[in-house]
Design a protein around this nucleic acid. Sequence first.
DNA 1: GATTGATCATGC
DNA 2: GCATGATCAATC
Length: 220
Amino acid sequence: MSPASISALLNNAEQLAGLSLGELANMLSVVTPPNLRRDKGWIGQLLELALGASAGSKPEQDFPELGVELKTIPIDSRGKPLETTFVSVAPLIGISGLRWQDSNVYNKLSCVLWIPIIGERSLAPGDRIIGQPILWQPNAEQEELLRQDWEEIMELISLGQVQSISAKHGQVLQLRPKAANSRALTEAIGEHGQPIMTLPRGFYLKTQFTASILAQHFML
DNA sequence: GATTGATCATGC
DNA sequence: GCATGATCAATC
């Protein structure tokens, strides 16, 4: 089921455009939940199944042979993203000397197949519509913004300032909790260089940034 | 209404 | 707990 080339993958994704998620779920014999409250990853997993992404929880791209990451993005009827986009968990220890080009963020964002999902929050998941896919690679300006934010955040983490980093840091990339709940803990660097336990964090793309990516392609 | 911190499901 | 897939929901 895994596509042999990027063009095949893109073609497959284009065939899905216009379908509702309920229709796609029926085709795949998947049950459509009434809401996403307990199924937050349902849309992403449905599209992974439909496009033949290698399942599993490996810290890799969805199509490692193609070097492509698959991401669904919820948008309203005007094409504006409704949510930030999760990229990857942030390493909090063992990060000295880690370079931007060796980071998980760089790897995952080097080539992304965006699948817009059209529908307001109030619309039932099964009634939301799959939009036209966008194959994106960051241009020089976008990569520079990402790199700057990543380096600033990672430096603060390495200096033991992780607990002072809020979602306000960064222009396009932000660091926010990424955990089962607020009681989850993981090891990090304290302000005096000592080990501390803190909330696991993840990197997210701000909506303004993803909106610019979508706008860039809508104008083509 | 946008943003930020919190949370849900699943398979190791 | 970590990594996958994200959205929820209280607060600003």
